[in-house]
């Protein structure tokens, strides 16, 4: 009854096929590229040195020609785990502080989407890492998992404090040096004034002073002042 004009329908079908085909190709290519991109994202943190040390200590391979792997003392393992926890603390602090900043910047369009992806991946990795550390700690000493991060936190805080102290103490030498130079130059100026006053009078006087004046001649001052610039840094 119905004569279907297949040839006439060819065009609409071709249209549909082309349309569908285009969409399919586009979406597969797009997805593949996206997946490749996210797979190639650089990790947020660098290699976890402390964890690597700990793991290599735990799984010591026997040396060649020897049957048994060298025995690692328990205390060394525990110290390595603690170091690992300290590093984790650093990383977790970094992640916590960066989180709000990163999300607000992302909303404003100041940073890119892939940064946020990397960030989220790092966050997830850190969660797993923390769980792992707790489990390891419990395996070594039952109950240690509850307090290992507490002690790690204290260690981290102490370390930060010490670093700051060292930084300040480092400056003392330079400050001292600068002050010596400055004092010398001031002294030098005074001595000059004195000398000029004394010039009119007879030459007489101090024994040790001339040496000082000679050492801190103006040629010494430039380096002195350049040191001071350095020390001027707060």
């Amino acid at each position: 009854m119905f004569e279907i004009d297949w040839r006439g329908l060819l065009l609409p079908f071709a249209y549909l096929v082309v349309l569908g085909g285009t969409f399919m190709t586009f979406s597969t290519v797009y997805r593949k590229r996206k997946a490749l991109q996210s797979a190639n994202l650089a990790p947020w943190f660098g290699p976890h040195l402390q964890r690597n040390i700990y793991l290599s200590l735990l799984h010591m391979e026997p040396e060649e020609g020897q049957e048994k792997a060298p025995k690692v003392p328990e205390s060394v393992i525990r110290a390595a785990l603690l170091r690992r926890a300290v590093e984790d603390i650093h990383r977790i602090i970094q992640i916590r502080t960066a989180k709000t900043a990163c999300s607000s910047l992302l909303q404003r369009g100041s940073v890119g989407d892939d940064l946020w992806q990397r960030f989220q991946r790092a966050e997830k990795e850190m969660e797993d890492e923390l769980r792992d550390v707790v489990m390891e700690a419990n395996a070594i000493v039952p109950g240690w998992g509850q307090i290992i991060f507490q002690s790690a936190n204290e260690i981290a805080a102490n370390k930060a404090f010490r670093d700051r102290l060292d930084e300040i103490e480092e400056q003392t030498e330079r400050e001292k040096e600068w002050w010596e130079k400055r004092r010398a130059s001031i002294k030098n100026e005074f001595m000059k004034e004195l000398e000029e006053e004394e010039k009119s009078q007879a030459k007489a006087g101090s024994e040790d002073e001339p040496v000082l004046v000679e050492t801190s001649t103006p040629s010494a001052t430039p380096s002195g002042s350049s040191k001071k610039k350095k020390g001027g840094k707060k």
Binding site: A98, A101, C102, R108, G109, S110, V111, G112, L115
Partner: peptide, 16 residues
């Protein structure tokens, strides 16, 4: 480009 007009990649690196 980020909102500040720099390349997004640069902004990401600066954040790091």
């Amino acid at each position: 480009r980020s909102k500040e007009g720099v390349l997004m990649e640069s902004a990401n690196r600066l954040f790091r």
